[in-house]
């Protein structure tokens, strides 16, 4: 907690995992296709290995430590 209340960031970078986005956004994937977020918090893949781009599908957890973001 800070002096003024709680930390509540819009974007959270998860070590070794995705980037969490709070709220409504449009995310463009590597092929230039736009995807709208559909839930209160979305997880954007940072490891590049998700089969569900641009969203994280948990695949980062089975990557060797050196390949995790």
């Amino acid at each position: 907690m800070t002096e003024h209340g709680f930390e509540h960031p819009d974007v959270i970078i998860c070590p070794g995992g995705p980037l969490l986005l709070r709220g409504d956004h449009v995310v463009e994937d590597a092929d230039g296709v736009a995807h709208e977020t559909r839930r209160p918090v979305s997880a954007v893949c940072r490891c590049g290995k998700s089969a569900d781009q641009p969203w994280c599908d948990g695949t980062h957890k089975v990557l060797p430590a050196r390949d995790r973001p």
Partner: peptide
């Protein structure tokens, strides 16, 4: 659940 729980696991563990 593939997509939802990739978010939920981060929320459940971290936040």
């Amino acid at each position: 659940h593939v997509e939802a729980d990739a978010v939920h696991e981060q929320l459940a563990v971290r936040t």
